[in-house]
């Protein structure tokens, strides 16, 4: 059997997605679930990173899907569906963070949300250092204002391109780059160059 070329598979996926979008726009909720379900894990991870609280991330994720379902009729295929869904998620996360800021006792990002166990190939001696650096980074990201935190999470943690990240946030690429740079400078100042020097980069 001849395996399809990667480009062909991507093309099939796009066709499939376009069909699901058309059905969802026509009011087919099952098609909407299949369409959005493909991004659900990534979207939930993004919310967890931005909000740091599993319960809140779950609540916001449900709201994101509801808003996307209600707005699917206005989705224009000029942007990718993924970017569009992420934009709704970032807006909803921002609203949740604003609500939180108005509450007297704010909930900080949980210590476990951004941390991965050290890669198994890490030397034990490096691991402790990495753990400390990770903890310092998580603290520094937690202390950033939401717009700066979102910039770092989208670009550096999620690995979105500058263009996609700028689209998600709804600003120009130049504005996004400037925001990202400010965010990184603040994180660098908070973590300190000495800690970064041992990070193995």
């Amino acid at each position: 059997m001849i395996r399809p070329l990667a480009g062909q598979r991507a093309g099939d996926q796009q066709d499939n997605e376009a069909r699901l979008i058309a059905r969802a726009k026509a009011g087919d909720a099952a098609a909407f679930e299949r369409l959005s379900g493909a991004y659900a894990d990534r979207l939930f991870m993004l919310l967890l990173r931005l909000l740091g609280d599993r319960g809140e991330a779950e609540d916001v994720a449900q709201e994101v899907m509801l808003r996307a379902w209600r707005a699917i009729g206005s989705f224009k295929s000029r942007s990718s569906y993924f970017t569009w869904l992420y934009r709704i998620a970032v807006n909803e996360a921002n609203r949740a963070l604003e609500r939180r800021a108005r509450r007297p006792a704010s909930v900080p990002i949980g210590p476990d949300t951004l941390q991965l166990p050290a890669a198994s190939s890490d030397e034990p001696a490096n691991r402790a250092e990495n753990r400390e650096l990770r903890a310092a980074l998580v603290r520094a990201l937690d202390e950033l204002p939401p717009d700066l935190r979102i910039a770092v999470v989208l670009r550096d943690v999620e690995g979105l391109s500058t263009q996609d990240a700028a689209d998600v946030v709804g600003v120009s690429q130049a504005a996004f780059k400037s925001r990202l740079h400010q965010a990184r400078l603040r994180v660098r100042a908070a973590v300190g160059d000495a800690a970064l020097a041992g990070s193995g980069a």
Partner: peptide, 26 residues
Amino acid sequence: RALVYAIQGLGGPAGVRAPATIFDRV
């Protein structure tokens, strides 16, 4: 460079799945 490398390495908790309730409101 070291900062971006370190942040990229943060990742997230492995194997996080969206909750089954994600489409409840839909």
